[in-house]
Write a protein that binds this DNA or RNA. Structure first.
Lengths: 149, 149
DNA sequence: ACATATAAGATCAAAGAAAGTCAAAGATAA
DNA sequence: TTATCTTTGACTTTCTTTGATCTTATATGT
């Protein structure tokens, strides 16, 4: 068992009761005798949106990394969407997804409106053209994930 | 729980009955065993207009810091928010707005979650650092606009 | 009334405490 | 043996805590 898998198991364990956990990066790294950035590696390779996790963090005194697991029961369709988006998505495809999910009653009209607003061309006007679809994909994934928590 | 959060909680507690409170900076600092300027730090990082608070103060004998929760009708608050964002907005300020709007029942919890997800650092990871706050402002405005329709 | 003392709060910069990033070096699997 | 995954470490950014110094209001003695 390599270090990364051990760390992942520890985090999974911590997530087990409530589906959410705050970890102290330096403290955990010290406990395991590894460098702190190893924790970041584990998180960025195993606790991604595609894996169904939302990660937030705060620096400075009292800082933390918060990991939240998306519920996978009623929302497996949402996870399926997240996993099929890939690295970029254009406006049209995105809208198609949203309409489709709304049609299937997985997203409420209200939620659909918000997501549409966020991924619209208007919202992303300032992003360089060649990056637009990448940023859109990233936003879309985070929002779909937020819908499933 | 770090010191700043503790102080913030105490203030929130004091605000709870009437939505307004006068605090004695030195007295509070002494009670908590911290330097007085710590109170200023907490106020300027957590009780800003974006968070929905108005702060006044008076020096000298009988001095005080008065904190008031601002209250207005929802459409004017939304308009006010949009008008005050300007061209860019950072993560923290944005979250402050969202929490404030949620607290004032202008955004539903669900909507707040979507907006938070959309403007999170995670969503915008692929945007060049110097453009992040610009894109965030644009997304945020579109979504607030969507909320007010 | 005026000058001085005392009692607040404000400001700012430095130090400290986390977490983030990125690239290079090492291992492992195809 | 090459591509991918892991480990490490140096450096950066963000948030918090502390302390010294400044400003403003009130109180008091002449």
């Amino acid at each position: 068992m390599n270090l990364s898998n051990m760390i992942a198991n520890i985090i999974l364990d911590m997530l087990n009761d409530s589906g959410q956990t705050d970890i102290q990066r330096n403290e955990l790294a010290e406990r395991l005798g590894c460098v702190p950035s190893q924790i970041n590696y584990v998180i960025s390779s195993r606790f991604t949106p595609e894996h169904g996790y939302i990660v937030e963090s705060r620096r400075g005194g009292g800082g933390y990394i918060r990991i939240t697991r998306a519920q996978n029961d009623s929302s497996s369709i949402l996870m399926h969407v997240v996993n099929n988006i890939g690295n970029e998505i254009d406006d049209r495809t995105c809208r198609a997804h949203i309409h489709n999910l709304t049609y299937q009653n997985i997203l409420h009209a209200q939620a659909a409106k918000f997501i549409l607003a966020a991924v619209s061309e208007n919202s992303l006007k300032q992003v360089e053209p060649e990056k637009k679809d990448i940023v859109r994909a990233s936003i879309f994934k985070q929002m779909i994930l937020a819908a499933s928590i």
